[in-house]
Structure formats: structure tokens, C-alpha cells
Amino acid sequence: MSEKDPQISARERLKESLSVSLDGHSNDLELRRVLDGISKDDELRSLAGRYQLIGDAIRGEVNQFAGVDITSSVMAAIEQDDIDSSFNQKLSDSSRSSVNDSDGVPKSSNLIKGLWVSLGKVAIAASVAVAIIVGVRNSNPPADVQLMAVNEPATLTQPVQLAHTGQNDYGASGIRAGYNSKLHDSITPEQLAYAQSLADRATRERFHAYALQHAELSAMGNGQSILSFARLTSFDSQ
């Protein structure tokens, strides 16, 4: 890609970047260019779908989600939503409404609903990057040694940051990679940081809630209930 032959048309270069971006090697600028290009060009869009399939096939596992045309649907979502003007407005609206309709609904679900509503607009934009990366990574099993060796370059750009150190380090979330990509200039870093913290809180709530469910399930089953419930203590240090 480094050498630019004048004969190569813009579309050819776009195709090339497309292939690179679906392989997970592209930078932000390239990704944005590809997305813009895809949205204007039907042929390129189908090409994107094909690359995605090829990528999956190379990685050895074609699954049922492989055919989903993620890019087009996400672009459509962006076109429909006016992110620039309405973000702040909607944010305050939704936080108000989530306070109001709290009757009869469990507290935690309400909180998450509120978070997600306010998050929605930013998240659509941000999820462009995530959707593409996740879509391609769909079949990338991180734990298998053999596959890991084959997929090594892809694994490096995986959107998920793992919190290795454990309990106090919340906030590793798949959405983060998308936010950091600065896909839309209209979103300020402050808004990104805010949206990110909302997403992290929602994820934390979810994990907390389901860790309790899991403890209950294993205690009722064959598990050692002392261990199952003792493990919940890690949530208290938050």
C-alpha cells in the first residue's frame, strides 16, 4: 500500500483499505474513509460482506452471523440520527425520564435503561468501529493456542481490554475501543469519556447482578456454596 501508482483509482485504494480494515490493521482515518466509501457504493458494500466472509473462512469458522452486513446497518443508523445537535439535549431528557418512570421497576434495571438511552446516540457512532471489529472477530476464539498462533495479528487489535489485575479495575469494556477511535469529530472527548463511563457502569451493574445469579445457581446445584458466595466479596471493594 505504501507505493501509490497514479494508475490506481481512488476506488482501488478504497478496496485495499477495506480489506485491511476488515483484517483489523487499519488506523482510524482509514476506517473512516472506508466507511464513507462503503456507504456511497453498492459494489463496495457487497465486497465488504464478501471480505468479511472470507476473513471468517480463513479463520476456520464460518458461523451464522458471518453474513450479517454490519457496516451498512450501522451506517444507516448514523444517517438517521443527528448526533451533533441532539446529544446534550437527549442526554438531559433521558436522565429526567428515567427518574420519572421508576414505579414498579427494579432499581437496577431502571438505571441501566436510563444509562443506555442517554448512551444511545454516541454509542451508535462508536459502535461502528466495534461492530466491524467484533463482526470480524466473531469467530476468533482467544483461548485456543493453535488458533491463536494463526490469528495473532488479529488478536492484537481485539477491542476488548482485559483487566488482568482483577477486582478494583473495572472499566475494561468492548465499547472502549470504539470510543477511542474518534470516528466522529462531532463528539467531544468529554462526551466520549462520559458515554464511556456510562457504558462501564452498565456493564459493572450487569456483571454484579449476574455474579449473584451464578452464585445462587451453583449453591442450589452441586457447587460448594461457601465458595460461590465468598466470591461475591470482590464486588464490595468497588
Binding site: 443506555w116 454509542a123 459502535s127 482485559l162 488482568h164 482483577g166 469494556s173 456483571f207
Partner: peptide, 17 residues
Amino acid sequence: DTRVLSQASEKIGALSA
């Protein structure tokens, strides 16, 4: 309901989520 494709994973003490 969020309709936002996302993925998150985390180690919380002995638990993986």
C-alpha cells in the same frame, strides 16, 4: 434493548465475566 453491538469482558476476583 440497547441494539448496540458490544462486547465486554472482565476478571472480577476469581470470577470471569
